[in-house]
């Protein structure tokens, strides 16, 4: 899922400074699951902002609405009525959600209420870790299903580096060495011989080398 984290109350307050009618929009998908931008978190942020604005003696009409997914126009249309009544919208979706809403309402300032972090996994209650950069050419098969492109601090395709330990990466004691994980996995699935092959430099062409990418699936297009 896409993992995001909340912005500080001060930053939120500054984002909407000068606006008198604001709509906070939650997203019911990834950011609800990662406890950052669902109905619940939008409610908490609203309490904070209402109090902060009242203390600053700057009246604010704040409304809230949470839609199923901010990254699909199909759901964003449900916002039209509420958005028409406000001066600005704050998206508590990921950066994709915020941009999709902004495209839909060209005359409305749309601000991001969250810091979008990464694509990752829920490890345990309220702990998420990054697992994939979306490089466009997945190499997981070579590495026993552990992505060194994302999880090795040096993105080594032929690791480990000299600082690797069995317990952690030399760059961060809190993070396992991806190459240790790769070794353990390959051993477990009896594919250690893969490590005899030198992996050639990664082709970054399918990745983010020249701006935003696009996926078109002809077989599913209509018209």
């Amino acid at each position: 899922m896409i993992v995001a984290s909340p912005k500080s109350i001060t930053e939120l307050k500054n984002l909407i400074a000068g606006h008198k009618k604001v709509l906070f929009v939650g997203c019911g998908t990834c950011v609800t699951v990662c406890l950052a931008g669902g109905e619940r978190e939008v409610g908490l942020a609203s309490y904070a902002i209402r109090m902060a604005r009242r203390l600053a003696d700057e009246p604010l009409e704040l409304s809230q609405q949470t839609i199923e997914r901010q990254c699909e126009n199909e759901f964003i249309k449900d916002l039209a009525e509420a958005a028409a009544k406000v001066d600005a919208v704050v998206s508590f979706g990921c950066g994709v959600g915020g941009q999709t809403i902004a495209e839909r309402f060209p005359d409305k300032p749309v601000y991001a209420g969250l810091n979008t972090q990464f694509m990752g996994t829920l490890e345990e209650q309220a702990v998420w870790t990054e697992k994939c950069l979306g490089c466009g050419d997945c190499m997981l098969a070579l590495f026993g299903g552990v992505c060194p492109v994302t999880r090795c601090a040096k993105r080594l395709l032929n690791g480990p580096c000299g600082g690797s330990t069995e317990t952690h990466c030399e760059v961060d004691e809190d993070r396992p060495c991806a190459w240790q994980l790769i070794y353990t996995r390959l051993k477990g699935i009896e594919q250690l011989d893969r490590l005899d092959e030198v992996v050639p430099p990664k082709d970054w062409a399918p990745s983010w080398h020249a701006g935003a990418r696009k996926v078109v699936r002809k077989e599913h297009r209509v018209g």
Binding site: Y47, Q64, Q65
Partner: peptide, 10 residues
């Protein structure tokens, strides 16, 4: 009387 009004869809 002001309390938060929550609207939710989906």
């Amino acid at each position: 009387e002001e309390s938060q009004h929550l609207e939710s869809e989906g």
